[in-house]
Design a protein around this nucleic acid. Structure first.
Lengths: 125, 125
DNA sequence: CAGTATCCCAACTGATACTG
DNA sequence: CAGTATCAGTTGGGATACTG
């Protein structure tokens, strides 16, 4: 007769790191990839590299100002490279994912898994 | 001599589901747990159940209006139960996590893992 | 205690125009 | 093409006061 509910993995991690620390780290993660556009840009770049205006057209409704800001931010976090080909005129700029951004794969997969599961749950009832 | 870069798992999932579909699902996930307070509330409730005002004090700077809205939203998504004990006066309301919210465990763990890894990378250089 | 109502402000967004 | 500058509109959240 087991009176105690089995703890889920996340609860164990909370005990390991401390509640506030866990919270802080997860907030940082949200800050790095959250917002309206960052994941969209990253996913577009998982498919292939794009030039600035190509990216803008691909994403749909994003303005040049916002796209520019997001790209700078993603570059700062090490997710993308800004690749300038100066041999053409005007210069050609290509944005591409870094190897580092592949570390996002497990996280994105879990977001996908949970979203698919949740969608089934919503539709199921 | 392997000319092709090995594909990461997420790229495979994109090919399986389609890029736009993946994007939509991940956006849904962001919508469900994103924002300034939802994860904080969920994590507080992973620790234990709280009454409304307890929760407000625990979270720090959240206003009653915002907390109220967030709790309604979390309840709608099936993450929490609003438990009313009418035997007391005034009534006592306790918020607790549902079993369903344990399905967030793998996702939260990946957010934690990535955040810890990223923090090390930032500090390392 | 468990919220609601009201007002206000800062931040983010979009649209448009402009530049090297 | 690859952005930057400027302005206007929306939104989300905080502060405070109030209610059953």
């Amino acid at each position: 007769l087991n009176m105690e509910k089995e703890k889920c993995e996340f609860t164990k991690r909370m005990e390991e790191h401390g509640c506030n620390s866990v919270l802080q780290v997860i907030d940082d993660t949200f800050y790095a990839i959250g917002g309206k556009w960052k994941v969209q840009i990253i996913i577009a770049l998982f498919k292939q590299s794009w030039r600035f205006n190509e990216l803008q057209r691909t994403l749909g409704k994003i303005s040049a100002r916002v796209l520019s800001n997001e790209l700078k931010n993603l570059e700062l976090n090490g997710f993308i490279n800004r690749n300038v080909d100066a041999s053409t005129t005007p210069v050609m700029v290509k944005y591409e994912l870094t190897n580092y951004s592949e570390a996002l794969s497990p996280l994105l997969i879990e977001m996908l898994n949970w979203g698919l599961m949740h969608r089934d749950k919503i539709k199921g009832k």
